[in-house]
Simulated assay, not measured.
Amino acid sequence: MTAYGYFLSSEEFTPAELLDQARMAEQAGFEGLAVSDHFHPWNDEQGQSPFVWSMIGALSQVTSLPITTLVTCPTVRVHPAINAQAAATAAVLTGGRFRFGLGSGEALNEHILGGAWPEAAERLQMLEEAVQVIRKLSTGERVTHHGTHYTVQNARLYTLPAEPVPLYVSGFGPEAAALAGRIGDGFVTMTPDATLVEQFRRAGGGGKPVIGGLKVCWDTDRARAVKTAHRLWPSEQLPGELAQILPTPEHFEQAAGLVTEDMVADAVVCGDATGDHVAAVRAYSEAGFDEVYVSQIGPDQKQFFDFYRAEVLPRLRDGMSVD
């Protein structure tokens, strides 16, 4: 049965607001939390970007829900050895309820130290080696690693959870899905694409978890919801590799000038029609996903959680249709 969680948007909300949302998500009946890991927001209108590891420490003290990063890039901005230590501590703080979502990253967050942004194929190679480093350190043994991209010298993690942190690998195309099947404990992808799920499973994913997520904008006025989603998240509608290669929020704002409100209205569930929300989330279950994380765009968080508690989650769990 598919589990339904809430996706905390660290690009859009302050740390205090994210903690409030986590509490409301648990009270509303969501079964897990996902949190984004960014250095920059996608645009200045979103306006936030707290440090994810500080947030996870705080979240561990206010909720009993499992927490997953969706996703962390462990290859450029922060060395994989430090990511391994951070993930292990997060797992200890949460009593083993932390899962580490990993991806090949975006220039938006990873270019900040001044290095060149690698091509996609090299980024996948770096991700694979980073996973190797994290797994070695997760054993608690002393690790020395001299690889193509990373060096680790006499490193050992002393604060470790009872079991290694599950590593869920993100991908949006067949090569990344195959890599996730080969090296990951689970697969993360953001569209309800049954073909990608099958590619992951054929490549070694078997019965491992598949996780997805979507943004919605609840509002009693659909037109107003569309405007809110267009103002805050036009970047979601940018095509191809733009999301991976544009380096600054200003570049995303320039590119997003090509995204119209009609494009957002066609792609994002906006308004308070229960059937629209149920159908959008259920599409992931039908595509073979094990967990789906929903994120509310904009300020109406309490109303969103009330709506999902009363109208959406019961129908999803009972398999009820909505006219």
Rank of each mutant, 00 (worst) to 15 (best):
V152Q: 04
L160I: 06
P247D: 08
F7T: 02
H111W: 06
E106W: 03
A90D: 01
Q85P: 01
A84Y: 03
V294G: 00
Q199S: 04
G181M: 09
P41V: 10
E122F: 00
R315C: 09
A162E: 15
P247F: 05
A28W: 03
R97T: 07
G103S: 06
K208A: 09
A203K: 08
D300E: 15
A84N: 11
E175C: 07
E17A: 15
T274L: 13
G147V: 10
V92G: 05
H38D: 08
L108S: 08
V92I: 09
E250K: 13
T228Q: 09
G96S: 10
A116E: 15
T69V: 02
V76P: 00
E129F: 07
M55P: 07
E311Q: 14
Q125V: 10
F51K: 07
Y158P: 06
E236Q: 14
N43P: 01
D262I: 08
Q237E: 13
P66Q: 12
A86D: 07
P161L: 03
V216H: 00
A25K: 00
A130C: 01
T191G: 12
T69H: 03
V278I: 09
H251P: 01
E286D: 15
A180Q: 03
P74Y: 00
Q303P: 02
S285L: 14
D20M: 13
E198T: 13
P164F: 01
A120N: 13
G181K: 01
A177M: 08
F30V: 00
T274I: 15
F307M: 13
E31W: 06
V312N: 04
R156I: 10
D300A: 15
H230K: 06
E311N: 14
F39N: 05
T148E: 15
D219L: 04
R315G: 04
L160P: 01
G240D: 13
T89A: 04
A84D: 10
G181N: 06
A130F: 02
V281L: 14
L8E: 03
A130H: 03
V197E: 01
T72A: 14
A58C: 10
F39D: 07
V268S: 04
F200R: 00
F172V: 13
G114A: 08
A16K: 14
M126I: 04
L232S: 00
A58D: 12
A283H: 03
G212Q: 01
R201M: 06
A283G: 00
D318G: 14
G206K: 09
V216D: 00
T191L: 15
L196C: 05
V197H: 02
N154Q: 14
P247N: 06
E141N: 11
T228F: 01
G205S: 05
T260Y: 06
A162H: 07
E163Q: 15
P174N: 12
H79F: 03
R202A: 14
G57H: 01
T63V: 02
S54D: 13
D272L: 09
R309K: 11
H38C: 03
V35A: 04
R222T: 13
Q301A: 12
A178K: 13
G171M: 07
V76L: 15
A177R: 01
L316F: 05
A273H: 12
D266E: 15
H111A: 04
E26Q: 15
A81Y: 00
R135A: 08
C73P: 01
T159K: 07
Q199V: 11
G101P: 02
T63I: 10
Q301M: 10
L127K: 00
D306I: 10
L313F: 11
A223I: 09
